[in-house]
Nucleic acid binder design. Structure first.
Length: 516
DNA sequence: TTATTGGGATTCTGGCCGGA
DNA sequence: TCCGGCCAGAATCCCAATAA
């Protein structure tokens, strides 16, 4: 980049100066005496001006502890947990009556200067964390016109929102793609490549490092999977490679060639970090895909983070620990008890969970962070007219995907008559002052993706309706007018969400729009 | 004195390899 | 299949020299 910087300087020359060739000047005006450069002194590398926030400095003891843990880390997962601890420690440093203010500035020099083994892997972890919106690395601050040298840490809630946006956008891309192909049959590679193309474009525009790009692409593909079923890691990795090859970002002819191997290698890194973030879970014993006997690792996105962001970054055993620590807090009520049941978004689990007024619960968690005004996680009121099938009185003809074709979701009239309250982008709370959230989205480059007021994801819903009509030749069951009403939380009941999860005939088992 | 340039030091990244 | 280690080169930072 030295050449680029030099070039920029050259462009700022005055024209008269610029006219003189540099080489000529050097020859004609070359000093007769030999150039004697001062011997460069060893200096303490000071990374660019970090915003002065003394409160961001970790106490020496804590810092020493983290550095020791780094030195002892033996795997990528260990490093991930320590890095997360590093960032959450900065969050706790901001403890105040109003809670931490995001994004938190975290000097990067601390991490980069550490003399620890496996430092290379720290960069991998940071890239994956950047890919999921946990942090944003700032190398040059446009506003301050200074070098960056720090991270912006956005916290768990912003990560969940970021992922929800990513999932929604992925569903939108797939819906648009299927609509554009109309009745033509499309292969999985074609569908995957449509998604990859969007991410690759974003990566190229934002100059994302390889692993950031890989993380986003990986999650994009994972979001296309049925949330209840694991997918073989090599299978997903192969799809990633095939899609990248299809759009021309990966040049290879054989799955044994180097570019493919590299994709596989990066996927392993991404998975390892995401597992440590408790964002995905892995299992060695596949509950599905019996045909892939050779596969040893199966993965599944942990959708529970959308209903309880606290379990993000938490080790699997730490949930129980957390329950023990906070069980005395009355503010969480019985939701604390039900936290242990948050294993999957299966309807029966949701049923139990939603009975505990999750919104109030969730709001209580994020009280003070202003995220309760998030457009992504807010209550939706669905009237009976919305829940009734389009062919009144009959069973809703919506089934689960191919993985469980026999399961027919059905709206129960006695529950449909009551409003329900669940986390969905379909509705929202009265907007509060949400500066930090807006700033976070701007930093993440997602601000433009935020739907305008009163248009939250309705366009997406509209798109789905159109696709539904084209695909099944009938009217979307939810075309009745929907009216958002304030919810009487004491009367909240739960209905089966499954019928909105996967459309019948979704041949590849995609969960097109889990939140809708 | 300031602007520009050269270049060493350091960080960052992608890729490959081999062992468990 | 999975993952840690290593390497090479690009990118970046920052100081010193030098011209204007």
């Amino acid at each position: 980049m030295k050449t680029q910087r030099t070039h920029r300087r050259k462009l700022s020359f005055a024209s008269s100066k610029d006219a003189a060739p540099v080489a000529t000047v050097k020859v004609e005006c070359a000093p007769e005496r030999p150039i004697k450069r001062r011997k460069r002194q060893s200096y303490r590398r000071c990374v660019s001006p970090v915003p002065i926030r003394l409160e961001n400095s970790l106490p020496a003891a804590m810092w020493g502890n983290i550095q020791e843990q780094f030195a002892a880390a033996k795997s990528l997962g260990d490093i991930t947990r320590i890095v997360l601890q590093f960032f959450t420690a900065h969050e706790s440093l901001q403890g105040s009556s109003t809670g931490p203010v995001f994004p938190i500035f975290v000097p990067s020099s601390g991490i980069y200067k550490m003399k620890v083994p496996r430092k290379r892997r720290i960069y991998d972890v940071l890239h994956v964390l950047e890919g999921i919106g946990v942090i944003k690395r700032v190398r040059y601050d446009d506003r301050r016109r200074t070098n960056g040298g720090y991270f912006l840490y956005y916290g768990k809630a912003a990560v969940v929102q970021y992922l929800a946006e990513m999932k929604s956008n992925s569903a939108q891309v797939m819906a648009n793609f299927r609509k554009s192909r109309r009745s033509k049959r499309t292969s999985i590679v074609e569908e995957d490549s449509a998604l990859m193309r969007v991410f690759e474009d974003q990566a190229a525009a934002g100059k994302w490092p390889c692993l950031v790009n890989m993380t986003v692409c990986f999650l994009g593909l994972l979001f296309q999977q049925d949330c209840q079923y694991e997918v073989g890691l090599p299978t997903l990795s192969a799809r990633l490679g095939e899609a990248k090859k299809f759009i021309g970002t990966l040049l290879s002819n054989s799955s044994t060639e180097a570019p493919y191997r590299d994709v596989h290698r990066r996927v392993y890194d991404v998975v390892s970090v995401l597992v440590s973030c408790n964002m995905i879970s892995t299992s060695s014993a596949p509950s599905s895909e019996p045909m892939d006997k050779g596969l040893r690792k199966f993965i599944r996105f942990n959708y529970d983070i959308f209903t309880d962001p606290r379990i993000l970054f938490a080790a699997s055993d730490s949930v129980e620990q957390w329950v023990g620590e906070t069980s005395d807090e009355s503010m969480f009520g019985d939701m604390v008890t039900s936290l242990c049941d948050l294993k999957s978004p299966k309807p029966e689990v949701l049923d139990d969970r939603m009975a505990s007024t999750p919104l109030t619960y969730w709001q209580s968690l994020h009280k003070g962070t202003s995220l309760t005004g998030s457009t992504v996680f807010s209550p939706v009121t669905i009237l009976q007219s919305e829940l009734l099938p389009y062919n009144e009185g009959k069973e809703v003809g919506l089934q689960r995907g191919s993985s469980s074709p026999g399961t027919v979701a059905r709206c129960r009239p006695e529950e449909a008559a009551r409003v329900q309250d669940f986390f969905s982008p379909l509705g929202r709370l009265p907007k509060e002052n949400n500066d930090w959230c807006v700033e976070s989205l701007k930093q993440l480059g997602l601000y433009d993706a935020l739907p305008a007021d009163d248009k939250i994801d309705w366009e997406l819903n509209k798109q789905l309706k159109e696709n539904y009509r084209e695909m099944w030749g009938c009217q979307y069951p939810g075309t009745a007018s929907v009216e958002l009403q304030p919810v009487d939380r004491m009367k909240v009941r739960v209905v089966d969400l499954e019928c909105y999860e996967v459309l019948d005939g979704d041949v590849i088992g995609n969960t097109a729009n889990f939140f809708c």
